[in-house]
């Protein structure tokens, strides 16, 4: 464990918590893409499938973190699609999730390190996570704005994988550890946030709201 991965995981936890708080406090999921949250839930379940296969006692924080990620993302989907369904902006959350899931699944079968079920599920989860934020960014471009709290969520969510890139550089240098698939997908994932990061740093930090040129 290194400082970059630690802060990456903390940033990821913060993002999940910020989104849950936003939906719970405002009792509304306006401006939140339900599809992105569904894709994240799929990512966690396919990536941590080992938790369900051979359930080992929660002896370390990693297992607890995995369970937190899975339960929090499923609970977030429950809030969006059931509890606060009336506030779900289905019209603007219109990016076809199939266009992300099918290519990720296909690519996972073509480019992986081992052709076995668990490895392919893990690879699918890595590829899907790289593009899972697209419906959320698409929704913001359609509505032309993002609530400040949603911007903070996106900033934390984008920072998590950016910090993981630093973690991979660190591990390459000190542990000669290389996970090409995760690195390439992580770089793509972080690049997708670039224009948002620019807007966040130039606007939200100064207290302004993000309004995209309609």
């Amino acid at each position: 464990m290194n400082i970059f991965r630690l802060f990456g995981d903390l940033s990821h936890l913060a993002a999940i918590a910020i989104l849950l708080l936003k939906i719970w406090k405002t009792r509304s999921c306006a401006g939140v893409s339900g599809k992105t949250q569904l894709l994240f839930a799929v990512c966690f379940i396919t990536r941590y499938i080992d938790l369900f296969l051979h359930f080992v006692s929660l002896y370390n924080t990693e297992k607890v973190m995995k369970l937190i990620y899975i339960s929090a993302s499923v609970f977030t989907c429950y809030l969006i699609f059931f509890k606060f369904k009336a506030t779900y902006d289905g019209n603007h959350d219109s990016m076809r999730a199939e266009f992300l899931i099918v290519p990720a699944a296909g690519l996972a079968c073509l480019i992986n390190t081992k052709f076995d079920a668990i490895e392919i599920l893990w690879t699918f989860s890595i590829y899907l996570e790289a593009v899972a934020i697209l419906p959320q960014l698409f929704l913001i471009s359609k509505t032309g704005e993002a609530e400040t709290i949603t911007s903070h969520y996106l900033f934390a969510q984008g920072s998590y994988r950016a910090l993981y890139i630093l973690n991979w550089i660190y591990r390459y240098h000190y542990e000669s550890h290389v996970d090409t698939i995760a690195i390439v997908a992580g770089v793509v994932q972080t690049i997708l946030y670039c224009d948002f990061f620019y807007l966040y740093i130039t606007k939200v930090v100064k207290g302004q709201k993000i309004v995209l040129p309609a």
């Binding site: 995981d9 990693e62 973190m65 390190t113 290389v178 090409t180």
Partner: peptide
């Protein structure tokens, strides 16, 4: 060295 086998990251 590819060390994918040990999935030690979240």
């Amino acid at each position: 060295k590819e060390t994918n086998a040990a999935k030690d990251e979240l």
